[in-house]
Design a protein around this nucleic acid. Structure first.
Lengths: 146, 146
DNA sequence: TATTGTTATACTCTATAACTATA
DNA sequence: TATAGTTATAGAGTATAACAATA
């Protein structure tokens, strides 16, 4: 049986507050200071899902094409991505992550995970509490990836 | 007994991914399109904690004073905050939220909660699953507010 | 004609440096 | 001298509008 509207609303409020605060705190931990959120999001997408066209990246990040052009320009200047013309459709430009770009993503993820693991460790959580957090994480991912 | 390092690291990775994705998704829901994240964060702080000096706001948001001056200028032009000189220390400027500003915060929170409640509802979560999310939310808030 | 991507232009947030006013 | 806040200036991300190249 599914849950009541009241439970849904209470849970939504709790989860929204907790999610925003934790995200805000973790966002401070970056591998490279010169890396913006926008640039890192593009690199993370390319790292996970491989080459993408500029339009596909813009849609995924929910920004306009000119905005994504600017972000990709910045990444290309730093050597973290390369543009490759598409042989089949010459209007298209494929964006690929470089080794340096992949390394930046890995460093940033590692640093953020270490920070969060330290924060969790300082509170002396029990295995049961950590299990609750992992179970909730799985549910949260179902919410955003239906 | 507290948890093992391995559990901490696994939980941290799960929770980081879930938190960023959900925050990203929810951030799209705003009461007013002209309201930026920076402006909304300031309004939310004032709404919760009352009047603050410009420097106090800058420290809380982890931005520089000139940056906060600019953000507060934008909010003041829209009528969401007012600056009041401090009688005791005339170097200081107190920033207060207006009724219009408080209404914007309330609207945005309401809209985000409704969006999240809908997303949760579409997945037909059970009461037990919602309870897991609420328990995790409480733990997440302990992490950021020690 | 529609799609893909870029350039032009403008606004906001951000930072550092330099400044004013006050303590 | 130190602190609170502003102004000046510059860089990045965002948007809309207009454009070129290709389908």
């Amino acid at each position: 049986m599914s849950a009541s509207d009241e439970s849904l609303q209470l849970t939504a409020t709790d989860l929204r507050m907790a999610t925003f605060r934790l995200a805000r705190r973790l966002r401070c931990a970056r591998a490279v200071d010169a890396m913006s959120d926008a640039q890192l999001a593009v690199l993370a997408t390319l790292s996970m899902h491989g080459r993408r066209t500029l339009t596909a990246l813009a849609e995924r990040e929910r920004v306009t094409a000119p905005s994504m052009t600017s972000t990709v320009n910045g990444l290309e200047e730093q050597g973290y991505v390369v543009r490759t013309p598409d042989a089949e459709d010459r209007r298209r430009v494929q964006v690929d992550i470089t080794e340096a770009g992949a390394e930046i993503v890995a460093q940033t993820i590692r640093r953020r995970d270490e920070l969060l693991a330290e924060m969790l460790g300082e509170l002396d959580f029990t295995e049961e509490e950590l299990a609750v957090l992992r179970a909730a994480s799985a549910l949260m991912r179902k919410v955003v990836e239906p």
